[in-house]
Write a protein that binds this DNA or RNA. Structure first.
Lengths: 198, 198
DNA sequence: ACGAAAATATGCGCGGCACGCAAGTTTTAC
DNA sequence: GTAAAACTTGCGTGCCGCGCATATTTTCGT
């Protein structure tokens, strides 16, 4: 990656994190694009060169996490069982989430959860997930030797996306000090088991 | 339902349909809130009393369809196997979709598909689906005698939502003259079969 | 290492949007 | 029949997203 693209990626990430931090602190509607741009030392117009709006900037973390998951899935050994590979890849994608000093705050989790109540953010986050699912379907198709245009790989990808979502909701509902991974593993395990009644 | 709520529901639906029709005709960005309001004979301010924006108005059809599905699932006999009940309910919800004269146009399907490419609409539609999934989880919990807060009913609901989405995508990809139901049945069947490799 | 070309950052302006608020109008309910 | 509740409307406001033109920075061939 050239120096140029590197800097671009840094700016993008900085803008995204600034948007999240400020939104958690003050609430979505109390954060202006101007504020985010200022926090990164960039003009408001430049913010809009990177993102079409506040919501997209925030959901960019979602997108990046998904890309890490897809990359991790690609990196799993080809002879590993599909569901296991998926579980490991998703876990890896979540665990390699970058952290800042503010993510250590005791109110961080609650703040993020609250932030995500905002309709605009829910839609944007779901859209990011959907984009990731599309990429994941391609990788799964490669892995299983199926046609990426057919139903099977897309069903797997999308149901995995759904399972991750359910796991996150359960995690949020539970004690905030709990670790996420068990929820994730259980959700994917249930998929692997064919969604049989408990 | 009182006369008041009835009229309200009519206005809501009229606004939603007008938004869709105009957007299919001209494209999302070329339709003003003012246009939609005028098409229904209502002030622009009133439009915003019903919907927070154009995207939400359009996605309202999504939401209503979902509500029909949930209601249909509630109406299925309690001793029917779960997956069958779900398949029938979803099929019912789709088949009972109201139609207007403009939905008969030969370009309607292509137009709707094109419309849905717009990022704002994708997010809003996905959000509507997510809301429906939440309601569906409750019904599934009742049906299966499980706790609606637990993972199982939510996983079922969300994976069904995902399957419906995949079915629609496949349908769109295929010949526009094909009927939707077979795609839907196959997607849900694959879920019922436990997502086993083909 | 230098200069042309490509990519990016910024300022400006504009049309539109979402919404709070306060008045006017219609429906409900007793 | 009348008072309250719900809905509609107009107005004002701050913000947004983006097209466009310009300035600045980076890249790349020679």
């Amino acid at each position: 990656m050239g120096l140029r693209e590197l800097k671009k990626e840094q700016t993008r990430e900085a803008l995204s994190w600034a948007a999240i931090r400020l939104t958690v602190e003050r609430g979505f509607d109390a954060v202006l694009v101007e504020d985010i741009a200022a926090a990164v030392g960039v003009s408001p117009r430049t913010f809009n060169n990177y993102f079409s709006g506040k919501a997209e900037a925030i959901a960019a973390r979602n997108l990046d996490r998904g890309k890490r998951i897809v990359a991790a899935l690609r990196a799993r050994p080809a002879d590993e069982p599909l569901w296991q590979a998926i579980a490991e890849a998703v876990a890896t994608g979540f665990m390699t989430m970058p952290t800042g000093t503010f993510t250590e705050s005791p109110h961080w989790h609650a703040g993020v959860k609250l932030m995500m109540q905002h309709p605009a953010l829910q839609g944007e986050a779901l859209r990011a997930n959907a984009i990731v699912d599309g990429a994941m379907a391609v990788v799964i198709a490669e892995r299983t030797g199926t046609d990426p245009e057919q139903m099977y790989p897309q069903l797997i990808a999308r149901t995995v996306g759904a399972a991750v979502l359910v796991a996150m909701e359960q995690w949020w509902r539970a004690d905030s000090s709990a670790s996420f991974e068990p929820f994730l593993r259980e959700a994917i395990q249930q998929l692997a088991n064919g969604l049989t009644a408990p």
